[in-house]
Design a binder for these strands. Structure first.
Length: 202
DNA sequence: TGATAGATCGGCT
DNA sequence: GCCGATCTATCAG
């Protein structure tokens, strides 16, 4: 199981995002091997009012403006960590938020960390995914493309016809951009919005 | 310097 | 369905 290389990430976020579906998020640590198949993610770009990078480089968003293939982790609503994959060129503030995944291995560790046993409650949501994988601010800036215990591997991409798009969850601006990508029909997609999300809300 | 909104989640009504 | 927890960044004064 080899990490996806730098070139995978050095493309625009809305191009990388659908290509992330079906890939495996892998963590090899003292807790053993953890892996999950990505089923939902969202693209964010520098000229995008919904993006953390929209107002320019800050201490918090510095990683987003760095080289592609690194991990951007931020603390949300005073309670949860959320993880992004940095995309595009070095110096450009774009990334893809990993929102949900289907647990594949290391399920007992995920259950212990989450305090839940149901498979759909382990990695289905950005805060849940980071908790299951033990990702925190300590992992901010980590290079996914080069020899760490956390990386993405090839996996098995879904049939292109099985990929659906929608507006991004919890975002009130730039609603015209259908930059949420998910595996249609997967029961591991986060459930915050209506089931038939292939439309753009008015 | 204070108020407020936010890429969330889980518990309660 | 609604609300609180409680950190970060931005904006108003």
């Amino acid at each position: 199981m080899r990490p996806l290389g730098r070139s995978f990430y050095s493309r625009p976020a809305p191009v990388v995002a659908p290509d992330l579906l079906g890939r495996l998020l892998v963590r090899k640590g003292t807790a053993g091997l953890l892996s999950a198949r990505i089923v939902e993610c969202e693209a964010y770009q520098e000229d995008d009012p919904a993006s953390h990078s929209f107002r320019g480089l800050t201490n918090r968003t510095a990683v987003m403006f760095g080289p592609p293939g690194h991990l951007y982790v931020y603390f949300s609503y005073g309670a949860h960590w959320c993880m992004n994959v940095v995309t595009g060129d070095d110096g450009e503030g774009s990334a893809v938020l990993l929102r949900a995944a289907e647990p594949m291995s290391g399920i007992e560790v995920m259950q212990a960390r989450r305090g839940r046993t149901e498979a759909q409650l382990l990695c289905s949501g950005p805060g849940r995914l980071t908790q299951a994988f033990g990702v925190t601010g300590a992992d901010n800036g980590l290079d996914l493309a080069w020899g760490h215990d956390l990386f993405l591997s090839e996996g098995t991409p879904p049939d292109p016809a099985g990929v659906a798009t929608s507006t991004r969850i919890g975002i009130s601006v730039a609603r015209e951009q259908p930059w949420r990508f998910f595996v249609a029909g997967s029961s591991f997609v986060s459930r915050r919005a209506a089931p038939s999300l292939a439309r753009v809300d008015p």
